[in-house]
Write a protein that binds this DNA or RNA. Structure first.
Lengths: 342, 342
DNA sequence: TGTTGGATGTTAAACGTTTTACATTATCTC
DNA sequence: GAGATAATGTAAAACGTTTAACATCCAACA
């Protein structure tokens, strides 16, 4: 059986193909009677309109592409889940653009929007995947694009994320308020804007508290469990051990904590640990993790809504959507133990 | 600037559109000289071929859809990450079909393959999203489809997953070997084939060991942290408390462990816990989780490879791809403490 | 009775490619 | 130099829709 199309339905129902099309997309343009006739014919043979042909004609693919570093990261997956959900609710599908941090793949996925395969892009990266200016694309002829969690350097693009600077300040202050001075830092990939800003926030908080940052206690890592693990190992070998560790993600924090435990350190008795993100696991681990919560679902939803509006031609009323973060004090942080330096 | 197409490039390079097309898809069909001319023209204006038109003409979308219960589930996300990776390596994109268990959405996503939007389906569900037989689709006119982790009931479809029955036997035997008799069970959604088979495996192992299953100790839950949490709460209220809990996923297990800890139970001192999946976190939690490891990446890779072969017209040499599972004994399980019933 | 206009249906031109079949030219063989 | 063959290019027909423009019919209205 050759693939059946609108033509076959038209023949079967004894009408023109235009009528069939109308019966589907534009009831009201066709009498109730013919509409039913068409639908019946379609139903009988299990007709499914060809989406590609439709998209080609209408220049709308009905897809968006989510460019994201790693679907298997718990923070990422929470966001993409929300993206998918709100896209679906508005009739869009989402193409998964897992880049593993590769700029090459970021560009490949972004290109889908230029080839008609996607109507817009949610970009969770700090890199612009298009050449802007210099005889190439102009900034305002980009495909609809919203920047999530990271900042690609163009204020003309809507972006949504938390205030990383302040969030880091809050995290640091929490530790400082508990009396910690020897605070270690484990960052994510320092190419990301999120890590850079958090680092700035941390520095500011420390400066404001009059505490000097011990460079040997800041390790430039990556946003993974393994990153946290490696960081903790290196930290523990320092002569001057930290009394607290501020991690730029919960996965990092959990990686750290595993090493600390393995080495016999008590968290938070010996060392306090604070994370970032508030992934679902954070409150289930032992001890429950103190963290800076990010509203992952809201971020995803907002990204998607913004993008779909953009696709529909609605300019967003504001470009910077800063979502609220929140310090969640659980049990992985505690006042510094004065006698610890024994 | 109107969207530029092959026609514009043809004009710009002074050749026919056929030649432009050949220059891209079929070099060799065109002289090196003209090819360069075309490429130069295309490059100059940043031409990107319209994928939809191409797909329409060739009847190949270059997409597959991954129908999966929940991207934010750690086991799922590991699989889908591998799917994306291998699909990408073979020039395919993946559409994200997060269903949250809804049959409706499963059908919607599956329909993409009938509308030309996707060339094939990876179905991680036990439900067939098409009407088979009864005047409707025949089983062998389904779109290319491979069944991952669950079994939709058709032996004609390739499927890949572990041997859930044996895996559960192994898990149960581990506990039994440690001397446990009061073994609780926390299942996932019992509509899934994975949970049903694991339950069968558990029953078999218990029967073989001559241990009677205490019905009050089996709770029918769902594959989530919350599911584990709720299950543990209900379990702890039983008069006859379990000395071990077998959970059908690591997330369930971690949910359980959090409750146990909160209530002052030591794992594994008071109660042993074993999970399923070996999600990345499993070895990082306290205590590191004993679990039945599933090769998530291999499962994803195999699903994708199988599907792409199917799309290319290669019949798989075998239909059942059972991937190896492995009992990973870590520290959440221990011999039963005889004096515990005090 | 002629005019207007709404309701319903159809024709045909797009949308931007790929690909078959054919045309032209160049190269080779004898 | 004839004929065959290879190399290169092109015209035009698809692919399966949507949609603007037009046609027809009929009721309503003056």
């Amino acid at each position: 059986m050759a693939k059946i199309g609108i033509k076959d339905i038209a023949a079967k129902a004894g009408v023109s193909i235009a009528t069939v099309s109308h019966a589907f997309r534009n009831p009201g343009r066709v009498s109730e009677q013919t509409r039913r006739k068409v639908l019946a014919a379609a139903d009988e043979v299990g007709y499914a309109p060809n989406r590609l042909a439709r998209s080609l004609r209408t220049a709308r693919s009905g897809c968006i592409v989510a460019i994201i570093p790693d679907v298997a990261d718990n923070h990422n997956s929470g966001i993409i889940k929300a993206i998918e959900k709100t896209a679906h609710a508005r009739g869009y599908s989402v193409l998964l653009g897992d880049t593993q941090g590769s700029p090459q793949r970021e560009r490949e996925f972004a290109a889908m929007a230029r080839s008609g395969q996607a109507d817009g892009i949610i970009l969770m990266s700090h890199r612009m995947p298009f050449r802007i200016g210099e005889g190439q694309l102009d900034i305002d002829e980009l495909p609809p694009l919203v920047n999530g969690c990271e900042f690609a350097g163009y204020d003309e693009l809507p972006m949504v994320g938390i205030d990383d600077f302040t969030a880091a300040v809050d995290a640091a202050n929490h530790l400082i308020d508990l009396g910690h001075k020897d605070i270690a830092l484990v960052t994510g990939d320092m190419a990301t804007t999120s890590s850079r800003r958090r680092l700035d926030g941390f520095s500011r908080a420390m400066a404001d508290a009059g505490i000097e940052i011990n460079d040997r206690l800041v390790v430039y890592g990556e946003y993974t469990l393994g990153g946290g693990e490696a960081a903790a190992r290196s930290l523990l070998m320092e002569k001057q051990r930290p009394s607290a560790i501020l991690c730029f993600s919960d996965e990092i924090a959990l990686g750290c904590m595993a090493v600390l435990r393995e080495r016999g350190f008590d968290v938070p008795g010996d060392i306090s640990v604070i994370g970032f993100d508030n992934i679902p696991f954070a409150r289930y681990v032992a001890p429950p993790l103190t963290t800076i919560a990010q509203p992952a679902a809201d971020i995803g939803t907002t990204c998607a809504a913004l993008l779909l509006d953009l696709i529909d031609g609605k300019r967003p009323d504001k470009m910077r959507h800063v979502m609220p973060h929140e310090l969640l004090v659980r049990e992985s942080t505690a006042p510094v133990f004065d006698g610890r330096r024994t």
